[in-house]
Amino acid sequence: MVEVDSIKKYFVKRNGFFTRDEKVVKAVDGVSFSIKKGETFGLAGGSGCGKSTLAKLITGILKPDEGTVSLNGAVDIVFQDPFGSLNPRMTIQEIVGEALYIRGKDKEEIEKRVRDSLRMVKLSDSNTLTKYPHQFSGGERQRIAIARALIHRPEFIVLDEPVSSLDVSIQAGILNLLKDLQQEHSITYLFISHDLRVVEFMSDVVGIMKEGSLVEVASAKDIYNSPKHEYTRHLIASIPTI
């Protein structure tokens, strides 16, 4: 369903205008994995390990320097920060319906499908459509972002830290919603988070990423019960216990 084959992305930083002193940051350094249809691949790792760059490479926001990404069908993405991912100058109808609008669908169909999409994320207040993003809470905005991703019925959605900026009390609601949607519509997920517990809850297969590379890939159970790589053990050991 989703095949990522040894992709690389390096960023070159020049230390000042007059110097040849360059620093190469290997954000993603030869990552390969595949995801089966309807499954969730969880990607965990510390901050700065290249998770978000990988998400941008897979969705085509960035072009890889090397390697290929092959997808069967449409892809969409949900970002971490629901304040930055919704255009503040557009109404919810315009935001959620845009993917259909640019494909020339007529007005009635767009409105109907926007309503369907919002119902799927459990936002069915009748005057939602004409409101602007700032009139919603963080959790509601993230639901709107999910509704936008769902509207053109993608087979694959990249979830880049979708609950990291939300209150813990709201996180569970969003995670359960994502799971329900996956079961109903057999959507494939790439779920990215720095929070191992959330990744365990969501994923079938987990990949641990460190400094641009995948250091370990295993089923969610195996990762926690018998971690093989030292870094994985370190991450599991540092999960805070209450």
């Binding site: 941008k56 969409d76 993405i77 100058r89 640019i102 494909r103 972002a145």
Partner: peptide
């Protein structure tokens, strides 16, 4: 900004991103 990235992923044209998403902001 992420709303521009999101529009790109959904296949919105450069022209529309410039005039509809970026310019008003």
């Amino acid at each position: 900004r992420d709303f521009v990235h999101s529009a790109k992923v959904q296949g919105v044209s450069d022209m529309r991103i410039m005039f509809r998403h970026i310019l008003p902001n």
